[in-house]
Simulated assay, not measured.
Amino acid sequence: MADNLVSLQVKQSGHVAEVTLLGPGKGNAMGPDFWRELPVVFRELDADPDIRAIVLTGSGKHFSYGLDLPAMMTEWGGMLGGTALAGARTEFLAKIRTMQDSVTAVADCRKPVIAAVSGWCVGGGVDLIAAADIRLASADAKFSVREVRVAMVADIGSLQRLGGIVGEGHLRELAYTGKDVDAARAEKIGLVNDVYADQDALLAAAHELAASIAKNPPLVVQGVKDVLDHQRAPRVADGLRYVSTWNAAFLPSKDLGEAVQAFLERRDPEFSGE
């Protein structure tokens, strides 16, 4: 397994791997280390013949607060400026597609991935669990496709993958409003399969499910996943390419700057549509 991981921890029990988000941002927020390490970890797990199923979870009380906005805005720098020209926007397009590829590495992993969600799962966290095969939650879990509330079009996979999970109507409601959804509602709309009393019960159930998958012929399980993904994967890839191009062209805005400033100042943003 990859050495010197900062944002992820990997443990193995039998034929099941547990991948835990570590942050290092508050609430396991997804900064540059996360986007770099996630595909490395999942490609290594994909290639490991001893691994047959994966449990994906978060450290502490929360799955993930989503994108580590201050850290990523620092990295993006002038790429989002209102006067950014073709060179800067092309560089930003490449950044988006690299982040998309990181999450797609989870979807492309031939081993079934079970996301075990406690506490908050926001923005990029929802992108991540949408790339998993199965989602479970504890009763305290809360979900939000939050990007619209910070003047962004979600571009890492939620808009492409959630329709097949919760249906178009529920996806549009989540994406247009950025509303928070509790575990009971998430179960009702099919975002999660089951809800458990607490985090300990959730992880136990996730590992039990992973172990039951791991008992089956591994190549057959991988074949089932391949067949299920055959029609979806090209559609998702096309959608990801489109939204990355759209955001490279239109994401820079006064509203985005206002959203970032409001976030840093811990106040509600005032959007002008500019």
Rank of each mutant, 00 (worst) to 15 (best):
A29D: 05
T98N: 12
F63W: 08
S138E: 04
H170D: 15
A262P: 06
D180A: 14
H15G: 07
R52D: 03
G27Q: 12
G27R: 14
L203W: 00
I165W: 01
H230K: 15
T177A: 06
F42I: 02
S144V: 07
A47Q: 10
D48Q: 04
A47I: 02
H15C: 08
V122W: 14
F263S: 11
G190I: 02
V6R: 14
G25N: 04
S158D: 08
K111Y: 03
N216C: 13
L171T: 13
A183P: 06
N28T: 03
A139Q: 14
A107F: 15
A29G: 10
V153S: 11
A233R: 15
Y242E: 14
K142M: 13
S272H: 10
D33V: 06
L209M: 14
L38N: 06
P252R: 05
E208D: 13
V103M: 12
P234E: 14
K254I: 10
Y242M: 12
V153C: 09
G66I: 00
V148M: 12
H15F: 09
A2N: 13
H62W: 09
V221P: 05
R267Y: 08
L159G: 08
R52E: 08
P70K: 03
D3S: 15
G273W: 03
M1V: 07
L171H: 00
D255I: 03
K215S: 14
G23Y: 05
L136R: 05
G163T: 03
D48K: 00
A29V: 07
L171D: 01
D255T: 03
T20W: 01
R146Y: 15
I134Q: 11
A211P: 02
T20I: 13
R149V: 07
V181G: 11
Y65V: 02
D182V: 10
G14F: 00
I189K: 09
